[in-house]
């Protein structure tokens, strides 16, 4: 069912923001292909009449009241920041919007 090409794996790596070497791409293409072959088994029984389950325990309408709760101080927020400047997280340049 699923043969993954190197290009497909490269595309997945890009979507997932993983900078992989050519060697890794090759390796994962092979491994993922094997795994996908195995898990494709699900299609054997997943007929159209079966309702999919996203949540094992059925619950609905879990809400909280619209109430303000304490937030972090700027110091607390910054505590794990790799780079912090002018009360904000500093990140490398962003290429284009969205």
């Amino acid at each position: 069912m699923a043969e993954l090409s190197r290009e497909q794996v490269a595309h997945l790596a890009k979507l997932a923001r993983l900078a992989l070497s050519d060697e890794e791409l090759e390796h994962y293409a092979q491994q993922l292909g094997v795994i996908l072959d195995s898990v494709a088994k699900v299609t054997e029984v997943a007929t159209a009449d079966i309702k999919p389950t996203s949540h094992a325990i059925e619950m609905t309408n879990v809400f909280r009241e619209d109430e303000i709760r304490p937030s972090f101080s700027s110091e607390t927020t910054s505590r794990n920041a790799p780079e912090w400047e002018d009360e904000r997280f500093r990140v490398p340049r962003i290429l284009d919007e969205e």
């Binding site: 500093r90 990140v91 490398p92 340049r93």
Partner: peptide, 8 residues
């Protein structure tokens, strides 16, 4: 821009 600052 050289870099960006983020406020959440």
């Amino acid at each position: 821009a050289d870099y960006s600052l983020l406020d959440y």
